[in-house]
């Protein structure tokens, strides 16, 4: 592979200030990570009640479920794809946990089954989009229909059940873990965040993730196997979506195969608001976390300001458009050279 792009004297280039586009990118990064702080300030100024421990924990519990669901969407977008099967996977895990627990299954056994099914969903998504060259949008849409339909066939639509008490406690804003007054769902999200960022930044797989999203042909020449990366990405996404589904069982106190439906729009919103390019090859889960926090606080702010549901939709749309106009205009990595 040859490169004909030159930047003149390298030492000179190093000494020069960064080019305008790179400065813009850095500014947008700063803006992304400052936006949750700014939103929190606005929220506390307009609705002081948020500053209570319960208020903050309520926000973090809501953010943790969305944050877990958005892991897969972030990575799928980073490799130039999208995952429309996340809501169905959330619904699958939600229904399996409640129905099987009501039938007397032990929780570890249920978790094992959910993990196996999630891996099957992720593997199928990755294989189909790689081996047959199908766009992930179509593959994951079909998978969503397959998963939801299978759950309905298996349960005959009777999706009620029972929820383990510790799952309910895990998503309670007044819940705690080992005496620390932080709900288990928040701890799980923070642990997931640490692992995901470690993988992105410190592992070979992380490099391959960006390489595949930047240019698949070049990645292949660099001995990256797209099929493996895609299978891992969609499997991790399905596992995290299932974790969100299990937590939602405790949160809502019951089961519904469509419980994950709101998370299609909200996970994509979190990724976009975080500034991860939908074109792939760039971004990070850390940005999505910022997007999750901003959207959670923004919707809370709208409730606090007693804005009606229709106007909430309008405001959310305006906010998304504004934010991506400010820092979401990056070109694809391959076009920046």
């Amino acid at each position: 592979m040859s490169t004909t792009i030159t930047h003149g004297d390298p030492s000179l280039a190093a000494a020069s200030p960064p080019p305008p586009k790179r400065r813009t990118a850095r500014a947008s990064s700063v803006l992304v990570y400052l936006s949750p702080v700014a939103m929190f300030v606005v929220l506390t100024l307009t609705t002081p009640g948020v500053l209570s421990t319960t208020g903050v924990m309520s926000l973090l519990v809501l953010a943790s479920v969305l944050g877990l669901a958005a892991v897969g969407q972030t990575w799928a977008v980073m490799i130039g794809g999208i995952d429309l099967s996340i809501p169905a996977t959330i619904g699958m895990a939600n229904v399996l946990v409640t129905t099987l627990y009501a039938e007397g299954w032990g929780f570890p056994r249920i978790v094992l089954l959910v993990v196996v099914v999630s891996l099957a969903i992720g593997t199928a998504n990755g294989l189909l989009s790689s081996l047959f060259g199908l766009h992930p949008l179509v593959v994951t849409l079909g998978m969503a229909s397959l998963v939801t339909g299978s759950v309905l066939v298996a349960t005959d639509g009777n999706t009620g059940g029972d929820v383990p008490g510790f799952i309910t406690d895990a998503v309670s804003p007044v819940g705690s873990v080992w005496g620390i007054g932080v709900p288990a769902a928040v701890i799980l999200w923070l642990a997931t965040l640490a692992v995901v960022l470690l993988v992105e930044r410190r592992t070979v797989f992380g490099r391959r993730l960006y390489a595949l999203g930047s240019n698949e042909r070049a990645a292949r020449l660099a001995l990256v196997r797209p099929v493996v990366v895609r299978v891992v990405v969609y499997s991790v996404g399905a596992l995290c979506a299932s974790a969100a589904g299990v937590l939602l069982a405790g949160f809502s106190g019951g089961a519904s195969v469509s419980i994950g439906d709101p998370y299609l729009f909200s996970t994509i919103t979190a990724v976009v608001v975080g500034g991860t390019s939908l074109l792939g090859g760039a971004g990070t889960y850390a940005r999505t976390v910022a997007g999750v926090l901003v959207t959670t606080m923004f919707t809370t702010l709208l409730v606090g300001l007693e804005i009606g549901p229709n106007m909430q939709q309008v405001m959310l749309g305006v906010a998304i458009l504004l934010l991506i106009t400010v820092y979401g205009r990056d070109r694809h990595v391959a076009q920046r050279l």
């Binding site: 609705t47 009640g49 208020g55 809501l62 019951g254 519904s256 419980i259 709101p262 409730v303 606090g304």
Partner: peptide, 20 residues
């Protein structure tokens, strides 16, 4: 606006109580 969905209802109610 709960939209007849328990998880949405609980989210909205928690957000309401947090801000009121």
């Amino acid at each position: 606006t709960g939209e007849w969905t328990p998880s949405t209802i609980k989210s909205q109610m928690l957000q309401y109580l947090t801000t009121h």
